[in-house]
């Protein structure tokens, strides 16, 4: 994980993980729905930096996030920082200490729902490859609905 005493700014080519805890945020073809990148109540969205973290460390953070919401981690979608920095959006380091120095926020979502949907659709279309399932036993068609 990132050394919290030497927290680097988020760089354009950094890979970020967005954790998936709702089955209806993903499609069967490996893509994700805009809802995965749609903020609610806040005009920012949590992501986790892969920088200096192993896949297992990132997955453990995801499991903690899911458990806090009484859910199971289904997987993660990876996206480059530069793909998030469109229109009004940017990415800022936002460590949650002591447990998660790799936490970051996508900030700058507009308040209007149609503008949020548009940005969320663009981010969903920009993930790196297919979303990654969290181990065996991924989602069912019922979850997807």
């Amino acid at each position: 994980m990132i050394d919290p005493s030497h927290l680097p700014p988020v760089e354009a080519d950094e890979l970020l993980a967005r954790f998936i805890v709702n089955g209806n945020e993903v499609r069967a073809d490996g893509t994700v729905r805009p809802q995965l990148f749609l903020p609610y109540k806040r005009v920012e969205l949590s992501v986790n930096r892969h920088r200096d973290a192993t896949v297992e460390e990132t997955a453990n953070i995801g499991r903690q996030v899911a458990a806090q919401r009484g859910k199971t981690l289904l997987g993660r979608a990876d996206i480059r920082t530069r793909s998030c920095c469109i229109q009004t959006l940017s990415v800022v380091a936002s460590p949650i200490l002591p447990d998660n120095p790799n936490h970051a926020d996508i900030v700058g979502y507009p308040a209007r729902k149609d503008e949020q949907l548009s940005l969320a659709a663009k981010l969903a279309a920009s993930i790196e490859s297919a979303w990654h399932a969290n181990g065996p036993g991924s989602i069912t068609s019922e979850d997807e609905r």
């Binding site: 805009p34 149609d114 949907l117 548009s118 663009k122």
Partner: peptide, 22 residues
Amino acid sequence: TTSISNTGTLYWAALIDSEDPR
């Protein structure tokens, strides 16, 4: 993608290649 609110307002956004009407 179209979101339906309880007031009957429909918020929509499309992506058609590089076009992004909403």
